[in-house]
Design a protein around this nucleic acid. Structure first.
Length: 283
DNA sequence: GTAGGGTTACGC
DNA sequence: GCGTAACCCTAC
């Protein structure tokens, strides 16, 4: 709207970084007013600084744009003050720690890049809420089932809007839901990844059946991947269940021990008072 | 004043 | 079409 976008210059970025090193992230007003940086940042508001730093931080955390050195999140002024050599050092460290730009574009483990559209459609069809799902619900659903990028939360809103524009989903107030056409069209692809509350004996079967087919189509491949993930989730659920049982067992033992201790204390008490105490095992 | 979510414009 | 940067809005 209105005013054209004002791209950040490298001087401004640098001033921001130095400001964060000096005052700490979150002190945007202070940084902006600091005479050392204010000449450069005069056209930026504290909000701008915050937004820019957010972008830089997202980028530094493993993704982001192609041609710039990114700086990692610096938590507070503790990152020992001033000195631009420190900054350079930090930038160098990032360059070392983070893979080169083209390497980070493709996940190293050979996975295909995330298909957010499919994930969202999956989420909506699984959540299956009559009035639609809130963005946070969609986010949590996807986050639980898929590896997502740190900036996924922001991508999601953008993605949802586009899906709504293309009528693949519809937006009602703050809620998103599948359109009729999508609802009838989307049931299957990632469907297998839906343990929900239904009987969990199914998915393992599903993956077996899917195994009978060659992964000849992307949809099938996706379904198979999803089935594997479900199986994985299942085993984790079982593991969690086992651990719960174990915890309960230990709690019970602790309970019993406490009772025994109480009994022993009472017996000891009586003995010290010279009382004769008999134990009746059948009590 | 700041954080975080949402929106829009831009470049690939 | 997609991801990202910059901007906007709102709650705290």
């Amino acid at each position: 709207m209105g005013a054209p976008k004002q791209k950040w210059t490298s001087e401004e970025e640098d001033a921001l970084r130095r400001g964060v090193v000096k005052h700490g992230a979150g002190k945007w007003r202070t940084i902006q007013k600091d005479p050392e940086f204010s000449p450069v940042l005069s056209s930026r508001s504290n909000i701008d600084l915050k937004d820019k730093w957010r972008n830089l931080s997202f980028s530094a955390s493993g993704l982001g744009s192609r041609d710039k050195i990114r700086v990692p999140r610096i938590t507070g002024p503790s990152a020992s003050p001033s000195s631009s050599s420190l900054l350079l050092l930090t930038a160098n460290k990032v360059a070392e720690a983070a893979p080169p730009a083209d390497a980070e574009k493709k996940p190293q483990d050979g996975k295909t890049p995330p298909k957010y559209g499919a994930m969202i459609l999956e989420a909506l069809s699984e959540l299956n809420e009559p009035n639609g799902s809130e963005i946070s619900a969609i986010y949590h659903f996807i986050e639980q089932r898929h590896e997502v990028q740190p900036n996924f939360r922001r991508l999601l809103s953008s993605k949802l809007r586009r899906l709504a524009e293309s009528k693949k989903i519809e937006k009602v107030d703050k809620f998103y839901r599948l359109t009729d056409s999508s609802a009838t069209r989307t049931p299957a692809p990632i469907k297998a990844s839906a343990p929900k509350q239904k009987d969990i004996s199914k998915p393992a079967k599903t993956s077996k059946i899917l195994g009978l087919f060659a992964a000849s189509s992307p949809a099938l491949e996706a379904a198979m991947t999803a089935a594997v993930k479900v199986a994985d989730a299942e085993s984790k659920a079982h593991e969690a269940h086992d651990q719960m049982m174990e915890a309960e067992r230990i709690l019970k033992m602790a309970d019993d021990t406490q009772s025994l201790l109480a009994i022993a204390a009472e017996i000891y008490d009586r003995c010290t008072r010279g009382e004769i105490t008999t134990l009746n095992p059948m009590a």
